[in-house]
Computed example of a mutant assay.
Amino acid sequence: MKTKLKLVIFASIVFITASSIAQQKKINVAESTIEWTGKKITGKHTGTLNFSSGFLSFENKQLSGGEFLVDMTSIQVTDLEAGKGKEKLEGHLSSDDFFGVNNYATAKLVIKKATKIANGYKIAGDLTIKGKTNPITFDLAVKGSSASTTLSIDRTKYDIKYGSGSFFDNLGDKAINDEFELAVNLKM
């Protein structure tokens, strides 16, 4: 009887310790969103991308890591209508001039470090786009089963130089900003 009681107590301690130390929360890819904005001299374009998968890791209820895959073939333009340039722009963004989705169908973010700040976490990670990986930092708000952030990405660090005034002269009003913005909302 004492042996059974000891086993039950030991199993309970192991279970409670394991469940309070580490937890991985998968995102709901159907409810999580990525909205992008790309700006140029004469205006801007907006659109969406879809997640393929993703999760956030927690240790002792504190964010400790995570990993996300984005389906780059899902790129959509939302500020233009069908038949009025939408398909043309989506095709150009999918081409090798921009994201080269035939060769690079996914982008990846790996969270390496999460430091608690007043409104959430300061994230340090690695972002891979078009086969190029660079470090990235941004703030992430986490509340219950949701997380959100807005971040800017310098596309030229990922060999996306088309229309960049940093690399080409005499572009005039055809110049495209090097940075694009992402508004990300995660649902778990």
Results as ranks from 00 to 15, higher is better:
residue 129 I to G: 03
residue 178 D to L: 10
residue 131 G to R: 11
residue 109 L to T: 01
residue 173 D to H: 09
residue 112 K to S: 12
residue 123 I to D: 03
residue 178 D to Q: 13
residue 107 A to E: 09
residue 152 S to R: 12
residue 110 V to G: 00
residue 168 F to A: 14
residue 170 N to Q: 12
residue 174 K to R: 12
residue 156 T to C: 06
residue 146 S to V: 14
residue 157 K to P: 06
residue 173 D to T: 15
residue 120 G to C: 09
residue 140 L to T: 08
residue 111 I to S: 00
residue 99 F to A: 00
residue 122 K to Y: 05
residue 155 R to A: 08
residue 128 T to R: 02
residue 128 T to Y: 04
residue 104 Y to C: 00
residue 109 L to I: 03
residue 129 I to A: 06
residue 116 K to N: 02
residue 156 T to Q: 12
residue 180 F to Y: 12
residue 102 N to S: 05
residue 129 I to E: 07
residue 125 G to S: 06
residue 122 K to P: 00
residue 115 T to Q: 06
residue 118 A to V: 11
residue 104 Y to T: 00
residue 116 K to F: 00
residue 139 D to V: 10
residue 95 S to Y: 07
residue 100 G to K: 12
residue 166 S to P: 05
residue 155 R to I: 07
residue 164 S to F: 06
residue 94 S to H: 07
residue 99 F to P: 00
residue 143 K to W: 09
residue 115 T to Y: 01
residue 179 E to N: 15
residue 140 L to Y: 07
residue 101 V to Q: 01
residue 99 F to Q: 00
residue 113 K to Y: 02
residue 109 L to D: 01
residue 118 A to L: 09
residue 151 L to P: 04
residue 131 G to L: 11
residue 148 S to K: 15
residue 127 L to S: 03
residue 99 F to R: 00
residue 121 Y to C: 01
residue 141 A to N: 14
residue 126 D to R: 01
residue 136 I to P: 01
residue 98 F to H: 01
residue 114 A to V: 02
residue 180 F to G: 13
residue 163 G to A: 14
residue 166 S to Y: 05
residue 141 A to R: 14
residue 109 L to R: 00
residue 121 Y to M: 05
residue 101 V to S: 02
residue 148 S to T: 14
residue 158 Y to V: 12
residue 173 D to P: 04
residue 124 A to Q: 13
residue 145 S to E: 13
residue 126 D to K: 03
residue 122 K to C: 04
residue 167 F to N: 13
residue 123 I to F: 03
residue 176 I to W: 09
residue 151 L to F: 05
residue 123 I to T: 06
residue 141 A to C: 10
residue 134 N to P: 04
residue 154 D to H: 07
residue 157 K to H: 08
residue 146 S to Y: 11
residue 162 Y to D: 07
residue 142 V to H: 02
residue 152 S to Q: 15
residue 118 A to T: 12
residue 168 F to E: 13
residue 133 T to K: 04
residue 118 A to Q: 09
residue 177 N to H: 11
residue 109 L to W: 01
residue 105 A to Q: 15
residue 169 D to N: 14
residue 100 G to M: 05
residue 152 S to H: 09
residue 161 K to Y: 08
residue 121 Y to V: 03
residue 139 D to W: 08
residue 107 A to M: 10
residue 159 D to T: 10
residue 100 G to Q: 10
residue 130 K to S: 03
residue 159 D to V: 14
residue 120 G to W: 10
residue 180 F to I: 14
residue 120 G to N: 04
residue 170 N to L: 09
residue 151 L to Y: 04
residue 176 I to Y: 04
residue 127 L to A: 02
residue 164 S to I: 10
residue 151 L to C: 09
residue 126 D to Y: 01
residue 93 L to H: 02
residue 143 K to Y: 10
residue 167 F to S: 09
residue 172 G to E: 14
residue 147 A to Y: 08
residue 152 S to L: 15
residue 158 Y to G: 04
residue 121 Y to G: 01
residue 135 P to Q: 13
residue 151 L to R: 08
residue 115 T to A: 12
residue 120 G to D: 12
residue 118 A to R: 07
residue 114 A to Y: 01
residue 152 S to K: 15
residue 126 D to S: 10
residue 134 N to C: 12
residue 123 I to W: 02
residue 103 N to I: 05
residue 178 D to C: 08
residue 163 G to I: 11
residue 144 G to H: 10
residue 105 A to F: 11
residue 107 A to P: 02
residue 101 V to N: 02
residue 158 Y to I: 10
residue 160 I to G: 07
residue 178 D to Y: 05
residue 153 I to H: 07
residue 166 S to V: 03
residue 142 V to W: 06
